[in-house]
Design a binder for these strands. Structure first.
Lengths: 252, 252
DNA sequence: ATGAGGCGTTGATGTGAATCAACGTCCCCG
DNA sequence: CGGGGACGTTGATTCACATCAACGCCTCAT
């Protein structure tokens, strides 16, 4: 089977490797997040076949860059990734953070070129899913086709949530909402919903939320003073989930 | 063939109708926008088969509402549609405007429920594409499958552009960028890139761009004073395209 | 050990857009 | 014909967040 890797990935050392990580979709702890489909184990084997695992990405390395040829979408197996676009005037807009079990790179399909860049926030293991193979397999596996339509749709609805957050909510609400989002996604991976380490810097948070570093920092301080959140550098503890929800102004 | 219509569409009068509008994908003036695929005429006939045309939606009527069962995606044939979400606290966030040839409703796939509402800004003719049929057809028509993946990906990249606009740009830049976007989309339909009528209200524009009506109005006034735009209520004329580009702060 | 550079926090000041308010226009309906 | 309501504009004031500035704490290279 031909192996496809994007240019920048190749540049920075994302290489398929012979080393057996003893991981496959069938035994992957994350498959309920990554592949929530009623796949026959036979189907999973086929999917496994096209997925390429590789040696981990180091902090700061790029998985792909805006403008790179689009060949694959990627699933995060461990670590975390930030996706971002560069604006006309050279500034950076963070468009998303991706944690284990989550899939990124789908924005590249439309123009056959990645529409954003993706960079490791910490050491990260990645599964590469060549899109051409995925398309072929989808045509014969209706549940896989459906799953990918759903994944892309999910990305759209997530973006709409961010649009609303940026357009309608205060700095307090935005930061609180991000904390809740990370908490929820942690819980989905059977990790603590109340204690976690933020892999991204304050700059990245501000950039994602349309705020300056200073504002993010002040919101954290305020939340500490209110005793709804404990912040120790990147270590976060949610002390009062209801309080954080109230600050985020969400009903759910 | 079974006919699927969403609940709210049914409530408000979106009904398939026997009247022959003498429209099909093969002869539709918009097909280069809506279906930019190398489809055999045979394929187009098959696609035509599943698409349902109906009597036009009147201004203010809903095509679907947030929470409705997801059955179909929709293509605009004439008129225009606004898509919006309702926030927890009851406010409205406009997530997009859709013009002839454009496709909406794909955000409903992920949860099998529409994630936003869609309402006619003026009388609008719509093609309904039942998603179940589309999925089946996609499995046997690779170019159609590819096309839909691309459409969804396009929606993602468009949302990312809006995210960046909301997060990084001033009121002037946002309004100018919207004018350019409408201008470009008009040109794609072989209409004037410099003169057009805005189908949406100032409230909708503000809501989409994360601004108040007053601010939108002031930006328009400013653009008039600068003589780069002529505004007469909803009638817009771009007097100086480069000037508008400069205001939007875009290089392209 | 040392100092430079990245990252985060806090305080003082400035500003762009929100808010509040008033008014004009258009259109529909009694 | 008149009035109520939706929509748009413009001006005065306020305010949330950006900006500017200073400083503390790491870490890492010399």
């Amino acid at each position: 089977m031909t192996i496809h890797i994007s240019d920048s990935a190749q540049r920075e050392g994302f290489k398929p490797c012979a080393h057996d990580y003893q991981v496959n979709c069938g035994n992957c702890r994350l498959n309920s997040i990554c592949l929530p489909l009623a796949l026959e184990s036979d189907d999973i084997a086929q999917l496994d076949e096209i997925i390429q695992r590789s040696k981990p990405l180091q902090k700061g390395q790029h998985l792909y860059r805006e403008g790179d040829d689009f060949q694959s979408v990627f699933a995060v197996r461990s670590g975390s990734i930030k996706a971002y676009k560069t604006t006309d005037d050279g500034r950076e807009q963070v468009t998303g953070f991706y944690f284990p079990g989550e899939i990124l790179g789908m924005d590249g399909i439309s123009k056959n070129q990645h529409a954003s860049s993706a960079k490791a926030l910490e050491t990260a293991a990645i599964c590469e899913i060549p899109f051409a193979s995925l398309e072929k397999l989808s045509a014969v596996m209706p549940s896989l086709q459906r799953h990918f339509f759903q994944l892309m749709s999910r990305e759209i609805t997530d973006d709409q949530v961010l649009i609303t957050l940026l357009s309608k909510n205060s700095a307090d609400e935005r930061v609180a909402a991000l904390m809740l989002s990370i908490s929820t996604r942690n819980a989905r991976r059977k990790l603590s919903a109340t204690q976690f380490r933020l892999p991204m810097s304050r700059v990245d948070i501000g950039n994602y939320l349309g705020l300056t570093v200073e504002t993010v920092s002040r919101v954290f301080s305020r939340m500490q003073k209110m005793e709804i959140l404990k912040v120790d550098n990147k270590e976060i503890e949610i002390l009062d989930l209801e309080g954080v929800r109230a600050m985020a102004n969400v009903t759910s």
